[in-house]
Computed example of a mutant assay.
Amino acid sequence: MFVYKFDVLESLKEAGYNTARLRKEKLLGENAIQSLRQGEMVGIASLEKICKLLDMQPGNLIKYIEDTEECKH
């Protein structure tokens, strides 16, 4: 499964994009913001937008870790 390497919302905030600005400027939708808060993966379009805002590649944001539960099946 994919997990974030760091707190994406905190990094966006440090870059000047607090949640109010993200909503107001329609940079990220409410669902994406809630997913980030809960540590859940966002959709590819939101991931692209985050990469653009933070000037990063997807591999800088997320990493793959083996889900040991799935491997047991």
Rank of each mutant, 00 (worst) to 15 (best):
F2N: 07
F2R: 07
V3K: 12
V3W: 01
Y4R: 04
Y4V: 08
K5V: 06
K5R: 15
F6P: 03
V8N: 04
V8T: 11
V8P: 05
L9Q: 06
L9S: 05
S11E: 15
L12R: 00
L12D: 02
L12A: 01
G16H: 08
G16R: 09
Y17R: 01
Y17Q: 02
Y17D: 02
R21H: 02
R23S: 07
R23V: 06
K24S: 11
K26S: 15
K26R: 15
K26T: 12
K26Q: 15
E30C: 02
N31V: 12
A32P: 03
A32S: 15
Q34F: 09
S35T: 02
Q38F: 06
G39P: 07
E40Y: 11
E40L: 13
E40F: 08
M41D: 10
V42H: 00
G43S: 05
G43D: 08
I44Q: 07
L47H: 01
E48Q: 08
I50K: 01
K52F: 11
D55C: 03
D55F: 10
M56W: 08
G59V: 04
G59E: 13
L61Y: 09
Y64T: 05
E66C: 11
D67W: 11
T68L: 14
T68G: 00
T68H: 09
E70D: 14
E70I: 15
K72Y: 10
K72R: 14
K72C: 11
H73L: 12
